[in-house]
Each structure stands twice: as structure tokens, then as C-alpha cells.
């Protein structure tokens, strides 16, 4: 890690740059979502808007983690800790997602609620 005052002084420029990139990324995300001439995919929100929005967000998040949180040059132990957490978070998401392929009939959350349309 950059620990000497000189090295820190140097990295301050990098922090400013990353800050600027994050600002620009945010502006781009909002413009793409709100300005018709930048609307990708079909008119209005669709899967391409989602892909682009999440891609920009992922880049921004990676920059924050790598530069501001110093993950670009960190000790191995921390990679293990953080990596395991990410893996478990992904496993959890997949397990929850499996509900979509649940062979038992799934019909929204009102299923079987008395008075709702889908109650049988």
C-alpha cells in the first residue's frame, strides 16, 4: 500500500480522477435512461437499458472497490475474505433464483389468498 507521504500525495491525483469517472458514469446512466436520443434498444425501458445500466454500475463499483478501497493492491487474506463473501452471495442469489424453476405451480404471491383473483 502507498504508505509514504510522497506516495500518498501522488495517489491523490488518482483518487480525483476516479471521482471524476464516477461522476461521469452516473451522468451517462441518467442520460441514457431519460434522454430519448440516447435511448438504446426499443423506446423506453427494456433489457438493453438494463444491461447498460448494470454494466456502468458494475464498472463504477469495481473502481470504488479497487481504488478507494485499495483492493488493487491488498494482502492475500483480504482477497480470501471478500472473495468468499462474494461467492456465498452469488450462491444465495442462484438458490433464490431456482424458485423460478420450481416444479410446484407458482402463480405470484396472491396465489391462494382468499378474495384474490388467483384464489382457487
Amino acid at each position: 500500500m502507498a504508505d509514504s507521504p510522497e506516495a500518498i500525495q501522488k495517489s491523490l491525483r488518482l483518487y480525483k480522477l476516479i471521482g471524476a469517472v464516477l461522476f461521469v458514469g452516473t451522468v451517462v446512466t441518467v442520460l441514457v435512461a431519460t434522454q430519448p436520443f440516447l435511448d438504446i434498444g426499443g423506446h423506453g425501458f427494456d433489457v438493453w437499458d438494463m444491461v447498460l445500466g448494470l454494466a456502468i454500475a458494475s464498472v463504477k463499483a469495481t473502481l470504488v472497490a479497487a481504488i478507494f478501497m485499495h483492493l488493487n493492491h491488498e494482502k492475500r487474506l483480504i482477497y480470501w475474505v471478500f472473495g468468499c463473501a462474494l461467492v456465498f452471495a452469488v450462491i444465495m442469489a442462484v438458490l433464490i433464483g431456482l424458485a423460478k424453476w420450481d416444479p410446484i405451480h407458482y402463480n405470484g404471491f396472491n396465489d391462494g389468498v382468499p378474495g384474490s383473483e388467483t384464489a382457487k
Binding site: V81, F82, C84, A85, L86, F88, A89, V90, M92, A93, I96, G97, A99, K100, Y106, G108, F109
Partner: peptide, 21 residues
């Protein structure tokens, strides 16, 4: 922070699940 990743990860999963369902 690792435990926080899993906490928020759970809520993001919940969001996806609620939206798809």
C-alpha cells in the same frame, strides 16, 4: 464488510425474485 456483502446480496436477490415473480 464480507458479512455486509452477504446481507445486501440477500436483499438484491430478493429484489430480483420479487421483480421476476
Amino acid at each position: 464488510l464480507a458479512s455486509e456483502v452477504m446481507l445486501f446480496g440477500g436483499f438484491f436477490s430478493a429484489y430480483i425474485f420479487l421483480r421476476l415473480g
